[in-house]
Every structure is written in C-alpha cells, then in structure tokens.
C-alpha cells in the first residue's frame, strides 16, 4: 500500500498554547497576593486645639528636658533637683512614677538645637511605657 507514505505526520507543527492561560493566571494571582501596600509606622500624638491651655498643678508634671547631647534632665514638679538620664532609662522611670501618681503628665521639653531623634527616643520610651498624657514643647530660656 503506497498510500501509507503520504500519511500526515502526527506531530503538530504548532507550539502548544493551552497552558499560557494557566501561566498568566498564576502570575496574576501571585502579584495579587504578594502586593502589600506599605503602611506608615510612627508614634501618634494628639496636638492641642488652638488656644487650648490647661492649668496643671506642678505636682502632676514630670519635666523631661532633652539636651543637645541626647542626655535627658529629669525634674519632678517644682523640685529643683535634676536627675540626668539616658532616653532608654525613661521607660522604667515613667512606669515607676506613674504607679505613684496616676495623673502624671510628661512634659517633654527639647532644646532648640537638640536633634529630632533624641526627642523621638524619649517619645518612644514614653510610648513603650504606655504613657498617654504627653506634652511636647521647646525649651525656652
């Protein structure tokens, strides 16, 4: 039978495209799953309303004076006694102080020439100690 020699080849001459869809869907799902929108992180504070000023008894204030060197001068209320501390020691101090006086307010006074990061270190320590009443000021002479 000579017809046999003319039989078409069984092998297809086209590239198999049936799996392209699967690849595309796989890519689609991969990107959908792995895309994360970077959420900003930071330390939240609530600023006072304009003109809002509250009189607070000196007894309830813990002054934290941030110096340009990064050292923090701690003063309790009216007392003139100054205790020098490093920012990382503030967390323990706050926990200790607030257990004695629940109404305590942290007044963070930063020297105008002190780097922002030193204020952040103190604020970070206060946040770590779950302090809620924080006042941010610049040190005035």
């Amino acid at each position: 039978m000579a017809v046999l020699n003319n039989k078409k080849s069984r092998v297809s001459d086209q590239v198999n495209t049936s799996s392209t869809a699967d690849i595309a869907f796989l890519l689609l799902i991969f990107f959908l799953v792995t895309t994360t929108f970077p959420k900003d992180k930071g330390l939240a504070v609530v600023l006072p309303e304009p003109g809002e000023e509250a009189e607070v008894s000196q007894r309830n204030i813990l002054h934290l004076i941030v110096m340009p060197s990064g050292i923090v001068d701690v003063k309790r209320g009216e007392s003139q006694q100054v205790q020098q501390m490093r920012p990382r020691e503030i967390e323990g101090l706050w926990r200790q102080e607030v257990s004695q006086n629940e109404n305590l307010i942290a007044a963070v006074k930063t020297h105008p020439d002190a780097s922002y990061k030193f204020m952040m270190d103190v604020l970070d320590a206060l946040h770590s100690a779950n302090a809620e009443r924080i006042s941010l000021q610049v040190l005035e002479n």
Partner: peptide, 12 residues
Amino acid sequence: VEAGVVRVVFAA
C-alpha cells in the same frame, strides 16, 4: 496647631 490639626504621627 494653627491649622487646627489634631492627629499627628511622627513617622519612624
């Protein structure tokens, strides 16, 4: 404060 903003975050 002058603009009346209350909620502020120091990004870090």
